[in-house]
Design a protein around this nucleic acid. Structure first.
Lengths: 192, 192
DNA sequence: ACCTGAACACCGTTCAAGT
DNA sequence: ACCTGAACACCGTTCAAGT
């Protein structure tokens, strides 16, 4: 059976969703493709790179139409973070995968770029835009990883824990970066 | 050579700092203690638990005197987050270890408890205190992991990247949780 | 171009047995 | 109580060789 890189990546995403990140091994993936483990290295240089590609594929599949560039900046920011959260929660261990890949710079650059793009029209000084974008990603990933950990623990019965409010995501979140208020969800931005 | 659990944990922390999280293996640690890998299971049920103990030991060693309970709540919050950041940055891969352990509920409960404690005196409605505490931890861990990734990449020469501003941590950060402003560094807290 | 087969250098964990 | 020795069931990756 002959495969291409895209087959390997989409099959890997499938394995991730069905068995989890810990079971997404090169050997498991190879077996799933009815191929020897070594054959994977014809399509991908190493596992690290593969995970980056899987994260990007996950994000592409979860992508929804975002507000246009003419929309208010805070709507764009909120839609980007909320969409990101929805995308990573849609796949088993998706939050951990994307957060890891992002931290190591192996992929998942699109959300950062989208945030920078939206923040560029916010009136926030350009020098603070990267910090603000990273702060929003920190919160979004951190929150999503925790949500997913508890959601999955609940369904697997691994951790016995109280129920979880799931709807507080970015609810009225305001970040102030160096004295600049950056409110998400209400479009206010005031200095000092 | 006879060991106790404390010896295993502190040696593990030593291996973490010298060789990194990826090289903190049961076999490596055993070799470091001049013992067979199986001997470790006399002191610790599994690796997961060990990592939790190592994270807690790291936090204990990095602990500094915090403002007392009579101090302003925002000073206490800021000191907790800043101290947490300092502690995890002081050990190689410390941020990743503590963040992971914390996400999986295997340890590192002290910072969360300290934040809840401080926020209890902030005037924030009690029902929002857990969310606020988790939000602050998300930001602190996310920021620290990213700082450390880039710091270590720079010193190892693995990733070539621009220089990094290191002093923007919690600088004027305000979080608004459900309409309640929670400003850190200036002790304001206003509703709506 | 795509894959096999075999090997290398590792993992975490278990368990009977020793002192 | 603390540890050894040996095994089990895995890893990621390389590389010569096949079609």
């Amino acid at each position: 059976m002959v495969h291409r890189r895209a087959d390997v990546v989409s099959r890997a995403l499938d394995v991730l969703d069905r068995y989890g990140l810990a079971d997404l091994t090169m050997r498991r993936l190879a077996a799933e493709l009815s191929v020897q483990p070594s054959a994977l290295y014809h399509h991908v240089p190493d596992k690290q790179t593969l995970l980056g590609l899987v994260a990007d594929e996950l994000l592409v599949r979860g992508a929804r139409p975002l507000p246009g560039v003419d929309a208010p900046w805070d709507e764009r920011v909120l839609a980007t973070c909320a969409g990101l959260r929805e995308s990573v929660l849609a796949y088993r261990d998706g939050a951990e995968l994307v957060a890891t890949v992002s931290a190591f710079g192996l992929g998942a650059h699109a959300p950062y770029d989208a945030l920078v793009d939206a923040l560029d029209t916010s009136g926030l000084p350009a020098s603070l835009v990267p910090t603000a974008a990273r702060t929003l990603l920190h919160f979004t990933y951190g929150h999503a990883v925790e949500e997913q950990t508890h959601l999955q623990a609940g369904s697997a019965g691994a951790i016995a824990d109280g129920p979880r409010e799931g709807s507080d995501f970015l609810a009225g979140l305001t970040l102030v970066v160096d004295g600049i208020r950056l409110r998400v969800g209400e479009r206010s931005l005031s200095e000092r």
